[in-house]
Design a protein around this nucleic acid. Structure first.
Lengths: 253, 253
DNA sequence: TTGTTTATTATGTCTATACATTATCCAATC
DNA sequence: GATTGGATAATGTATAGACATAATAAACAA
């Protein structure tokens, strides 16, 4: 029913051209949310390509969240209700380098102790778990860029007991030594307290952006970390949504 | 060379089983970053499936960022250097409902004016652009959950001039009326100033989480908005990375 | 009208095959 | 030894066809 013939731009692979053409129809509001796009068969015939090629194009749009498909009924333009953007959290070093800043890592303290009965450790790792606790600071151009407080589960990563973390940051070390199956991020704002304010060299009570990250392998928590940034250092997250699709359109500053 | 025979779990489509099996090898550190995984041909032979099926599985891992492919050389386990998590920003109403809270929207002010020479508007929309400026508040369970300040480009969305935004929030309205091709998010922490503190009913100087979002359609900026949350309201971003893959593992609280 | 069965049909998966594209390797040459 | 150039091989794209699956719609029965 819907006009299944549209303009392919001749740029790149066929399935990409088709994907972009459909995305254009949607972002151009020609096909609005809820609209049934042409059946695969129709596009196949109209464009003179194979069904698999059309299928691949539409599937890409499905994983982009632009299209929902229903067997027998057809494929429909999704209702947009959220704005979805990949939040890429680089290691501090990568982040500094991306901005062209000089980077320095600074270990503030390191200690080994079992998780005791407090919300910070026992609840997350289980009481009695052996932990390395690390406080460290990451400097960009000589200025504190981020202060971290981290606990590493020695039951899961015993090798961390033999690492002093004086020259390599625990985040970078873990990425090299441990895989993870799940991660959770919690973002919040808080007023810097005494310790944190001193580490970041900002006024006590100054606003501060915190990213808490908990990482699992299977059921076991590998590490829990607080990354604290001065409030005015902005985290940028960007995305070109439907026209280019796929991954890897992140920007940062 | 590498052992191309691995366990399929028999659950779901073949390409999914293969994808999961490869992901398991990677998260289990059997295949470490830089390792060359078996060639498509090898897996095809070892598993007794078609090459297209293997190809589809590996391509999914590529868009998950777990695998990088090089023609002629092979497919390799990617170096993990970032933690990637989809940040889904719901409309305020959806967010409140997700938490089971009662939701109320409150318009604080609305005005129409051209963009003047300041950083907030002219730099983003171009000098002289006609804008609607809206201040509003979103309440959850009677408590201020978020305060927004928004500018909408009337050149791009003329219909916004006829909408008073007294009952419908501009974010929800725009999602219904305008497509977008690109969005950019900037997250920062700041101390609530007088106006903002009053709107959120928090102490002046209290920390506050701000998400700035700028949305484009083609080259034109549709809207720019500041979403301000009380600092202690945490934004949750979660993701099960490699084993489940694809989209839609977001959690929130 | 209501409920059940059946046929239809669009998507979902999978295969076998073909050719294009290019890094890589290796051998021949300068 | 360094450069060049071609053979090789692995991925990239595209095709046609097949069957599975499931939801809709139509036909039928209670």
């Amino acid at each position: 029913m819907a006009d299944a013939s549209f303009e392919l731009d001749g740029q790149g692979p066929l399935y990409e051209q088709i994907r972009k053409a459909i995305a254009r129809k949607i972002t151009g509001r020609e096909w609005r949310p809820g609209h049934r796009i042409p059946f695969e068969n129709e596009m196949t015939a109209a464009l003179g390509v194979s069904r698999m090629t059309v299928n691949r194009a539409i599937n890409a749009l499905v994983s982009d969240g632009l299209i929902v498909r229903r067997r027998k009924a057809g494929s429909f333009v999704a209702e947009q209700s959220t704005l979805d953007a990949p939040l890429t959290i680089l290691t501090a070093e990568a982040e500094a380098c991306a901005n062209g800043a000089t980077y320095r890592y600074e270990l503030l303290s390191r200690s080994v102790s079992p998780a005791i009965r407090d919300a910070m450790t026992a609840d997350r790792f289980g009481p009695g778990t052996s932990l390395v606790c690390i406080e460290a600071r990451h400097m960009a151009n000589g200025q504190p860029m981020m202060a971290e407080r981290r606990w590493i589960n020695l039951d899961v990563v015993p090798a961390a007991a033999n690492e002093d973390f004086k020259t390599i940051a625990p985040g970078a070390w873990l990425l090299k030594h441990m895989p993870w199956s799940e991660a959770e991020h919690v973002i919040s704002a808080l007023a810097a307290d005494g310790d944190l304010a001193r580490h970041l060299e900002i006024a006590s009570g100054a606003p501060c952006l915190r990213i808490e990250r908990r990482t699992w392998i299977g059921d076991a928590t590998i590490t829990f970390v607080e990354l604290n940034y001065p409030g005015d250092s902005k985290k940028l997250v960007g995305r070109f949504q439907p026209l280019t699709g796929g991954r890897g359109n992140e920007k940062r500053s």
